[in-house]
Amino acid sequence: MRVDLFDFDLPTERIALRPARPRDAARMLVVDGDAPFSDRHVRDLPQMLRKGDVLVFNDTRVIPAQLEGRRGEARIGATLHKRIDLRRWQAFVRNAKRLRPGDRVEFPAEVTAIAEARHEDGSWTLAFEGDEPVEVLLERAGRMPLPPYIAGKRDTDEADRSDYQTMFAREKGAVAAPTAALHFTPELVERLDEAGIARETLTLHVGAGTFLPVKADDTSDHKMHAEWGRIDQATADRLNAARAAGGRLIAVGTTSLRLLESAAGEDDVIRPFEGDTSIFITPGYRFKAIDGLMTNFHLPKSTLFMLVSALMGLDKMQAVYAHAIGAQYRFYSYGDSSLLLP
């Protein structure tokens, strides 16, 4: 399909620079089959779901993966986006033309890394020196890696260390938040429990590649970035059992959805999964593992807008986004939510 079919005009003032407070006060646009769109709030979620439904969360934890350093007199910015091994990470580098293989980059707090090799996509392998775990070094020297559409408008600050982390965050390794789950609070989870709505977690370490623009003119020519994920046997068994009993699996975020679909076979059974996934979901895809999606509002011509268009239909999602813009919903990572039920 032509990528320009997924374009739309978004006023810049609709981009949220801070989250709603409290988190579950964010607005939520409910799109349920052929019913009229419903303007609600995230705190209304227990009323929108049924007893026996299962919300599937991503428990990845964002690490402070953005670093500012120097190679000699040259300023070098690095955003880590994929772990290679214990000491080496693949990173997108700003001012990369000043780097050569073997160069040492000095970051704050006595953190240093060697630029080992440049990849075809322009990113670099950085090998961190010393014996301390890289995560410890990042806590000392790094910043939360806010998306470019936020970081380009304001500085990252201390509030982002908690704002850009979900209440389910446990497994360190993401360099972008699974933002649909940013809206949840302990109070909302308690009300979901009382309503008989179950929850499960999986892990998918979101990479900075999620923000890369689609440069191809046709979706068939786009190469999707890979991200590491895991679903264990017990979780897969519970998800399959819930669905067999008539419950709906509602992915909280496109990251949970992509991993569930990667783990499901053509028989619609979810199996254990551990490894990289580069699944690219566009209209025409047959969903095997999920029955609905809770997600924020996405960028024009992005792979994520293509994904929601695959779930609900392109014409309907264009109408949904036109409604959201007209009704002044807040967009992107710190923005409002939608509940999409085909």
Rank of each mutant, 00 (worst) to 15 (best):
Q90T: 04
Q66N: 12
W228A: 10
D218E: 14
I250E: 07
R98I: 11
F128A: 00
V206H: 04
G247N: 02
V42C: 01
P101Y: 08
A174I: 07
G152C: 06
T295C: 07
I84R: 14
N296P: 01
S262F: 06
R191Y: 01
G326I: 11
R330K: 09
L293F: 03
H323F: 09
L204W: 02
A177D: 08
E200A: 14
T185K: 02
R14A: 13
P272W: 13
I84E: 05
W124E: 06
Y329H: 01
R199N: 02
K97S: 15
E261K: 04
A263Y: 01
R100T: 13
R118K: 13
L260P: 02
A180S: 05
A177C: 15
L86P: 07
E13C: 09
V42R: 01
R98T: 13
R43M: 10
D53F: 04
A242S: 14
D163M: 06
V42Q: 05
I279Y: 10
I114G: 06
A181Y: 03
D221S: 14
L80E: 02
A310C: 07
D103H: 10
L137A: 04
E120Q: 08
A117I: 13
A151E: 12
D34K: 13
R87V: 08
T179I: 05
M1F: 13
G313K: 01
D24I: 00
F273K: 12
S162P: 05
P148M: 02
R243D: 01
D217F: 14
V3Q: 05
A226E: 12
T60H: 05
F305S: 00
V3P: 02
A177L: 14
F128W: 02
A16P: 00
R87Y: 10
A198I: 03
E120K: 10
R40F: 00
G313T: 08
F57L: 08
I76V: 11
E73I: 12
Y285V: 10
P108L: 03
G229T: 06
F280D: 09
V134R: 00
A141G: 00
V54N: 06
A244L: 12
R98W: 11
D232V: 07
V175D: 02
F107D: 02
G69W: 08
L29Y: 08
G142V: 00
V93D: 01
E106R: 14
I270H: 09
M224Y: 10
G246K: 14
Y334M: 09
R230W: 13
M294L: 14
Q90M: 12
P147T: 05
V320T: 09
A74N: 13
T235Q: 12
R61T: 13
R40M: 09
